[in-house]
Design a binder for these strands. Structure first.
Length: 154
DNA sequence: GCCAACGTTGGC
DNA sequence: GCCAACGTTGGC
């Protein structure tokens, strides 16, 4: 079992949007970065857990935990002319982009801000990709030790 | 294969 | 809104 972090702009799709979804589930579509795609397509397994992270907002941070409930399948939004994630280079015969399904496990009791995470950038979380400068990856693995540590942060 | 131009991400 | 970082594109 592996751990992940998934970014979403709350103005686009927030954890409350997920909570309000049918089965508290959604397909994680719109990822258009190859490194992130490779994680989704090749490495995410059913049962893996992921932090739900709110990015590009007033107070970025980890807001909840989701479970991967279905492994990779083609991203339909890439085929849809009317979707903002439409990609003419993705063909049904050779899909370029993939999604997984995720289901809400729970929101964190206390919103864990990026600022709070940064307090540990020098020691316990020194390897956390999220805290590296210039980090723009929207899907990234979290080491088990980092996952455990993050859950202990008050 | 190089690299400049451009677009996007995301924190602040 | 600004700007640094980074990925992608396209001419050569």
């Amino acid at each position: 079992m592996r751990y992940w972090l998934l970014k979403s702009e709350p103005g686009d799709f927030s954890i409350d949007d997920l909570a309000a979804s049918e089965n508290q589930s959604t397909c994680w579509d719109g990822v258009r970065n190859y490194q992130a795609r490779n994680f989704i397509r090749n490495e995410m397994k059913k049962g893996d857990l992921a932090f739900f992270y709110h990015s590009s907002c007033a107070e970025p941070g980890i807001t909840g935990i989701v479970e991967i409930t279905r492994e990779a399948y083609p991203d339909e939004t890439a085929f849809d002319h009317n979707d903002k994630h439409f990609d003419p280079k993705s063909q049904r015969s050779d899909p370029r982009w993939y999604v997984v399904d995720v289901q809400l496990k729970h929101k964190l009791e206390k919103y864990l801000t990026l600022a709070k995470l940064r307090q540990h950038a020098g020691d316990s979380l020194s390897a956390l990709q999220l805290l590296k400068r210039g980090n723009r990856l929207s899907v990234m693995p979290i080491a088990p030790d980092d996952w455990k540590f993050i859950l202990t942060i008050d």
